[in-house]
Simulated assay, not measured.
Amino acid sequence: MKRAKITIIGAGNVGATCAHWCAAAELGDIVLLDIPATEDMPKGKALDLMQASPIMGFDSNIVGTTSYEDSRDSDVIVVTAGIPRKPGMSRDDLLATNAKIVSSVGEQIKATSPNAVVIVVSNPLDAMVQQMLKVTGFAPNKVVGQAGVLDTARYRAFLAMELGVSVEDISAMLMGGHGDTMVPIPSCTSVGGIPVTQLLSQQRLDEIVDRTRTGGAEIVSLLKTGSAYYAPAAACTQMVEAIVKDKKRLIPCAAYCDTQYGVGGFYVGVPCILGNDGVEKIIELELTSEEKTNFQKSVDAVKSLVATMDGLLSA
């Protein structure tokens, strides 16, 4: 059986760690790609991972490169390319810069891997995945954003820490945009099948949700010189696995919603069935009136972000 070909665009911390996780799980052969200015850095990281293979016992082939030709005919592409926000840089600066980077990446993907499923990780996530769809012209199910898996993982980790239970016993769902407007769904949050509302007060649950919303910023403040990468890379790997193994995982992803939830043609975090064809189905939950209100606020925030991006790109 032919191995899947997985290309990871951006060989920084998130991209290289994603390559590590994917190789260790033997999900396929891996291409670790970065811009020519990085020179031989992707080759060095790929070689280091290959040298780990006899120890860890994986047979995935890993190639480091700065050429999109090496990524040709990929089955799955993970896009981590972009810049982090720096001192003195406005949110609009980050939005415009990364939108241009994602546009350039999207053009290359369109030319070299027209049948790939594309997982976008670059921030601001909800706008970047929308731009990737626009540039590639791919079917919406073939372009998906990674955020929900990460946000839900943080939520589950914090709940496990609070309750002193295994993370394996916690099921949870978060929806909406990636960031301050994400929407927890209490009716879909349980511990060993027990509703979380029976185990925690509403006040404590709200505090954990707030910590989840700022989970990335908390890590940035602790690291001082970087941002999270272990958990984001693990989240990407779970999505890659669902696609290459056609697992039909029901997980939250930034998916293109048209009539679903009345979104009207934007990417937003919703529960999806993820398989070999990308987003194979969007699950429409029955939300409470409060959840509907919060979800709509999140959708409106995403629409505003995309409008700002479009304005900056056309200026």
Rank of each mutant, 00 (worst) to 15 (best):
I6G: 05
I6W: 05
T7K: 10
T7R: 00
I9R: 08
G10A: 00
G12N: 08
N13F: 03
V14M: 08
A16T: 15
A16Y: 13
A16H: 07
T17A: 08
C18M: 12
A19K: 06
A19E: 07
A19H: 03
H20E: 13
W21Y: 15
W21E: 02
W21D: 05
C22G: 09
A23N: 03
A23P: 11
A24D: 12
A25E: 15
A25N: 14
E26T: 07
E26S: 15
L27N: 04
I30K: 13
V31P: 01
L32F: 13
L33K: 12
L33F: 06
D34L: 01
D34A: 09
A37K: 13
A37S: 13
T38D: 11
T38L: 09
E39D: 05
P42N: 13
P42E: 12
G44L: 11
A46E: 11
A46Y: 01
L47H: 08
L47D: 06
L49I: 04
Q51F: 09
S53E: 07
P54K: 01
M56P: 00
G57C: 08
D59S: 01
D59K: 11
S60E: 07
N61I: 06
N61P: 02
N61Y: 14
V63C: 00
V63A: 12
V63F: 07
G64E: 11
G64I: 10
T66D: 10
S67F: 09
S67K: 12
Y68H: 02
E69Q: 00
D70R: 01
S71V: 11
S71T: 12
D73M: 05
S74H: 09
D75T: 03
D75E: 15
V76K: 07
I77C: 10
V79R: 02
V79G: 09
V79F: 02
V79Y: 03
T80K: 04
A81L: 02
G82I: 06
G82C: 06
I83V: 00
I83F: 09
P84K: 05
R85W: 04
K86V: 13
K86R: 15
K86Y: 12
P87V: 02
G88Q: 03
G88P: 05
M89S: 07
S90L: 11
S90N: 11
D92G: 02
D93P: 10
L94K: 03
A96F: 10
T97N: 11
N98F: 15
A99M: 10
A99K: 08
K100I: 02
I101N: 01
I101M: 08
I101K: 12
V102P: 08
S103M: 15
S103G: 11
S103Y: 15
S104K: 15
V105S: 07
G106M: 12
I109L: 06
K110M: 01
K110I: 04
T112H: 13
S113D: 06
S113C: 14
S113I: 10
P114E: 06
N115F: 05
N115Y: 08
A116G: 06
A116I: 00
V118A: 03
V118F: 09
V118S: 09
I119A: 04
I119V: 08
V120D: 04
V121A: 11
V121I: 11
S122F: 10
N123S: 06
N123K: 13
P124I: 00
L125I: 08
L125G: 00
L125P: 05
A127H: 10
M128L: 14
M128C: 04
V129N: 06
